[in-house]
Design a protein around this nucleic acid. Structure first.
Length: 461
RNA sequence: GGCCCUAUCGUCUAACGGUUAGGACGAGAGCUUUUCAAGCUCUAAACCCGGGUUCGACUCCCGGUAGGGUCACCA
């Protein structure tokens, strides 16, 4: 793995150093599918960089060759592209081995680090590792979000920075790469707070400028534990499978631990870039709420035009015209495209295939002479529906049917429902469905008539 | 357990010493509709506790409590 001639890796661009004031990075390790919490840090890093007119880079931290998988790496770029968070440059940490080695040797030569003889504690442990000579004392760094954070680095001891000259450990590789790539702002999860001190020690020993740190509050699951694979967090790309729109997910993620300072709740990517500000980032952790995400998604689905709605959801049908007419129904009912599909297969399936109404259900409820009432009610509609034009709006249908239902009501035989219920049920064959006027406008007079006549036949039989 | 971080409705949050503590999602009720959904209206729902500082604390300080993170030859 880790060959360089692989086109799954996006095109590289050289960052012109000094030109851009801000460079942020997203540095995931490709050892599994990343979840919403991971991508939330990417979102913040991206928004901050773009708001500042800077660069956003992605670095795959694949120094753990045993656990890193190309499949996961592809999934990361796939998700980033889907969320529309394009990188200005991408790197793979394993490609910087010689640079890491060079600096490791430099530290050893300066006796800031040393090769240490070890007694292996577990399988895989080396007999020799490279340790950093810890100067001890306390170290304070200023975090953009949390303010000053002080650590007593003595507690860290002479920590390991590499398993061998060619196998630097995370802390070392991160510091070197961030510096080499010109990263000015390290925006990452709060679980890295305790790593910062030792990284700062390495950074100083190497003579690097220290980047600005911003440790984001963690995203929690419903049990208030850090979002994690083992605790059932979904891979971000699973939300695409559920039929979530990327702009909705981006919107939701951006609002987890941040807000624009005004009353806006729904913001496009451009609006987010414009408004994003690290100083408004929350200190406390936030719980990921799928229900809220769904509601944000519904908002964005409703904003789509009929054509876009169909295209974005990859929706098609043998009856494209009916499907088009059903879009408003879908937009008011479904929160995700997954739900759209469920509805098309379920409660809205009556739009595409003739129902088999049950005799008992056709009868208006709780009425004396129910059968006669339902039958005559349906028969009374035949003429009016026959007279309808081929293309009718639900409003127009309502205009002709409602008066007839009102007449029935005037006769005191159970109100409009005596007409409306059998009608709706005859058309849909379902206890729950859109209203009969909408149904007729989608089905058209001809098919509606056929369904009503079928229902009348059932009542007679 | 050591170290570190955090603390406003169930959840996401507003408030930056003076408000009837606001909004959103969710929940409940009503209207509408003899279905469902949507829509509209309304309601319930929070400043973790204790000390200070101050004329005055959700806001500042200290302590406690609770929650979380982290303590690898993983990142």
């Amino acid at each position: 793995m880790n060959q360089t001639n692989d086109n799954s890796m996006p095109q590289r661009k050289i960052i012109s150093n000094g030109v851009s004031p801000v460079v942020t990075r997203f540095a995931p390790s490709p050892t599994g599918y990343l979840h919403a919490g991971n991508y939330r840090t990417a979102v913040f890093a991206y928004l901050f960089a773009k708001h500042s007119g800077g660069k956003f880079i992605v670095r795959i931290e694949d120094t753990d060759a045993a656990r890193s998988k190309r499949e996961y790496e592809e999934n990361i770029f796939d998700a980033l592209a889907w969320l529309n968070l394009p990188a200005d440059a991408t790197y793979r940490q394993s490609e910087h081995r010689s640079r890491h080695r060079e600096l490791l040797e430099k530290l050893i030569a300066a006796d800031t680090a040393y090769v240490s003889k070890e007694t292996p504690q577990k399988p895989g442990d080396r007999e020799e590792v490279i340790r950093f000579r810890n100067p001890g004392g306390s170290l304070t760094f200023s975090d953009v979000i949390h303010g000053d954070i002080t650590t007593d680095v003595t507690d860290l001891g002479d920590f390991i920075i590499a398993r061998s000259l060619d196998e630097p450990v995370f802390h070392f590789a991160v510091v070197v790469d961030d510096a080499d790539e010109g990263v000015t702002h390290v925006i990452r999860g709060g679980d890295h707070i305790s790593n910062t001190a030792r990284q700062l020690l390495i950074s100083r020993a190497l003579g690097f400028a220290t980047p600005t740190y911003a440790h984001l509050p963690l995203i929690m699951d419903s049990q208030h534990k850090k979002l994690g694979k083992r605790t059932g967090a979904k891979a971000l790309t699973d939300y695409r499978l559920l039929g979530i729109l990327p702009e909705a997910l981006l919107n939701y993620l951006a609002f987890l631990g941040w807000n624009p300072g005004d009353t806006r709740e729904y913001m496009s990517r451009d609006e987010l870039v414009e408004a994003f500000d690290l100083t408004r980032v929350q200190k406390g952790s936030a719980v990921f709420d799928e229900v809220k995400l769904f509601s944000v998604n519904q908002h964005w689905m409703r904003k789509l035009s009929t054509d876009d709605f169909l295209t974005r959801g990859n929706l098609s049908s043998d009856s494209p015209e009916k499907l088009r007419k059903a879009v408003p129904l879908l937009q008011e009912r479904a929160r995700t495209y997954g739900e759209v599909q469920e509805m098309l297969d379920g409660e809205l399936s009556c739009l595409f295939s003739a129902p088999e109404p049950a005799r008992d259900q056709l009868l208006a409820k709780e009425l004396p002479g129910r059968q006669a009432v339902a039958k005559s009610a349906l028969e009374g509609l035949l003429e009016a529906i026959k007279a309808l034009p081929g293309e009718v709006s639900a409003e127009e249908v309502k205009g002709v049917i409602m008066p007839l239902a009102d007449e029935e009501e005037a006769r005191g035989k159970g109100g409009r429902g005596a007409v409306l219920w059998p009608l709706r049920y005859a058309l849909s064959g379902q206890e729950r469905s859109p209203d009969p006027f909408t149904l007729i406008s989608i089905l058209g007079p001809e098919e509606s008539l056929a369904r009503i006549q079928k229902a009348i036949a059932i009542l007679e039989g």
